[in-house]
């Protein structure tokens, strides 16, 4: 990674890590994970399994909040505050700026997801669960999904307002978890156009279920290496394409 991307990523990491809202979200997430025992106690079923279930849902939910709401401000805020003038007037290519910003937030999210996963692992152990490596594997899946959301948020923030970026990114998140269903129902249609359309929409929209291994982990089934590799490749290609589009749009951006 060129030094300039690293410098921008490190600065973004520093910016987000010094953001007090981030700590509030993290503290709340850790509190919920810590209290999952009481929630599990109220539920019917195996206690430790419900702790993992609630804990992973918590990591997912709070991770998405950070990815979307900080992701949409990544590029936009730099333009609004005009700090972008100071960066892009230096020998920095515009794509390096976009990639650096996304990489910096990805680094912050890696840290947050890791902290939450470790806390969940310890809580799970404290209540008698056996050492569960699946927590980290499922968290890695969640993290990959969050990185894809950062790429999408970066794309939207290059050409629209933060509010619209948030709406678009959340819409992508919601659709991304049902895009496989669209393909399934479209495929059952007798009309060829509907089948092609559903197939087209499926490939154009993100398939975030590729990264969802929470159920397997809860039921003690670890994902095979092939599935992990497949998800990683999907992230690289889909996320890369989204980020490429963001870079192309940003390259022609006029700063008023």
């Amino acid at each position: 990674m060129p030094d300039r991307i690293l410098s921008i990523a490190a600065n973004t990491f520093r910016e987000t890590i010094r953001n007090k809202i981030m700590y509030a979200i993290l503290a709340f997430a850790l509190l919920v994970i810590g209290l999952s025992y009481f929630l599990a106690d109220l539920s019917v079923g195996e206690l430790t399994r419900i702790i993992v279930d609630v804990g992973l849902a918590c990591i997912h939910f709070f991770g998405v909040i950070v990815a979307v709401f900080i992701g949409i401000t990544l590029v936009n805020q730099e333009m609004e505050r005009r700090t972008v003038y100071l960066i892009l007037s230096k020998p920095v290519r515009r794509w390096e700026f976009v990639v650096g910003k996304a990489a910096g937030l990805s680094g912050t999210l890696a840290l947050i997801v890791l902290v939450m996963a470790v806390v969940l692992f310890l809580v799970h152990r404290a209540y008698g669960g056996r050492p569960e490596a699946g927590i980290f594997i499922a968290s890695a899946g969640i993290y990959m999904e969050l990185v894809l959301l950062i790429c999408l948020a970066s794309l939207f923030s290059t050409f629209t307002t933060p509010v619209l970026s948030a709406i678009f990114t959340i819409a992508m998140f919601l659709v991304g978890h049902v895009s496989k269903d669209l393909l399934f129902f479209g495929g059952r249609s007798d009309v060829p156009a509907v089948r092609w359309l559903s197939e087209g929409v499926f490939y154009a929209l993100p398939n975030l279920e590729n990264f969802n291994w929470k159920n397997e982990v809860v039921y003690g089934k670890l994902r095979s290496a092939g599935v992990l590799l497949n998800a990683g490749s999907y992230l690289v290609f889909y996320g890369g394409a989204v980020l490429l589009l963001a870079c192309l749009l940003f390259a022609r951006k006029d700063f008023k």
């Binding site: 910016e15 505050r81 230096k90």
Partner: peptide, 14 residues
């Protein structure tokens, strides 16, 4: 741009 030093109007910083 390595050979240029630029200061924008009312510069904003991090």
């Amino acid at each position: 741009r390595r050979r240029i030093g630029f200061m924008p109007e009312q510069p904003y910083f991090y």
